[in-house]
Computed example of a mutant assay.
Amino acid sequence: MRLHSFLRLFPVIHLANCLKWDDISGLRDADGLIEVTDDNYQFLSKGPREFYSALYVTTSQANSEGEVCKYCDLFEGNARKVSLAMLTQLSEEASREVFFFMLDISKCRSFVEEIGLKTIPHMLIYPPYTKDDNFAWSSSQFYQFHITDESARDPLLFADYFAKILNVYIQVTRDFDVNEFACYFSAFLVSFFVLKKKILPRIPNKPRFFSLVFTLAIIFTSITGYKFTKMNNIPLIAKDGQGQIMFFSGGMGWQFGIEILSVTGMYMGLGACTVGMILLPRLKLNNGMFNLVSIILLVLGFYGFAYFTQCFKIKQPDYPSLV
Rank of each mutant, 00 (worst) to 15 (best):
I234K: 11
E50D: 12
E180R: 12
C108H: 03
G243H: 07
I218Y: 13
G250D: 06
L157I: 12
F302L: 14
D177P: 00
C72H: 07
E65N: 10
S106C: 11
L27T: 01
D160N: 12
A79E: 07
Y143W: 03
Y126M: 02
I199L: 12
G269T: 08
G66F: 08
S83C: 06
L300N: 05
K230A: 11
D133V: 09
Q89Y: 01
K313Y: 10
E67R: 13
Q61S: 12
S140L: 03
T37K: 08
N63M: 08
I199F: 12
F188N: 07
Y226W: 14
Q244M: 15
M123I: 09
S60Q: 15
I314G: 04
S106D: 13
Q316P: 01
N286Y: 13
P201S: 02
A16S: 14
R174G: 06
G276P: 05
L90I: 03
L33Y: 01
K206D: 04
F193W: 05
Q255V: 06
F305W: 08
R174Q: 13
S25V: 09
E259A: 04
D39C: 11
E150C: 02
R174C: 12
L279H: 09
S5Y: 15
H122K: 06
G271V: 06
I237F: 15
S294N: 11
L44V: 10
Y226S: 01
Y41E: 00
S321C: 10
I314N: 03
G32K: 04
F256K: 01
W137K: 02
Y56W: 12
D39M: 06
G32A: 04
I203K: 03
L19M: 10
C18Y: 13
G243A: 07
I295G: 00
H4K: 15
P128T: 06
A30W: 05
L195E: 12
L84S: 01
P155M: 03
D175I: 01
E180L: 08
F193L: 12
E113D: 10
D177G: 00
A163K: 01
I147L: 00
S294H: 14
N287K: 10
T88P: 00
R28S: 01
Y226L: 15
S211W: 07
Q242S: 11
T130F: 14
W254H: 09
E67P: 05
I218W: 09
F214D: 06
H146K: 04
G77D: 15
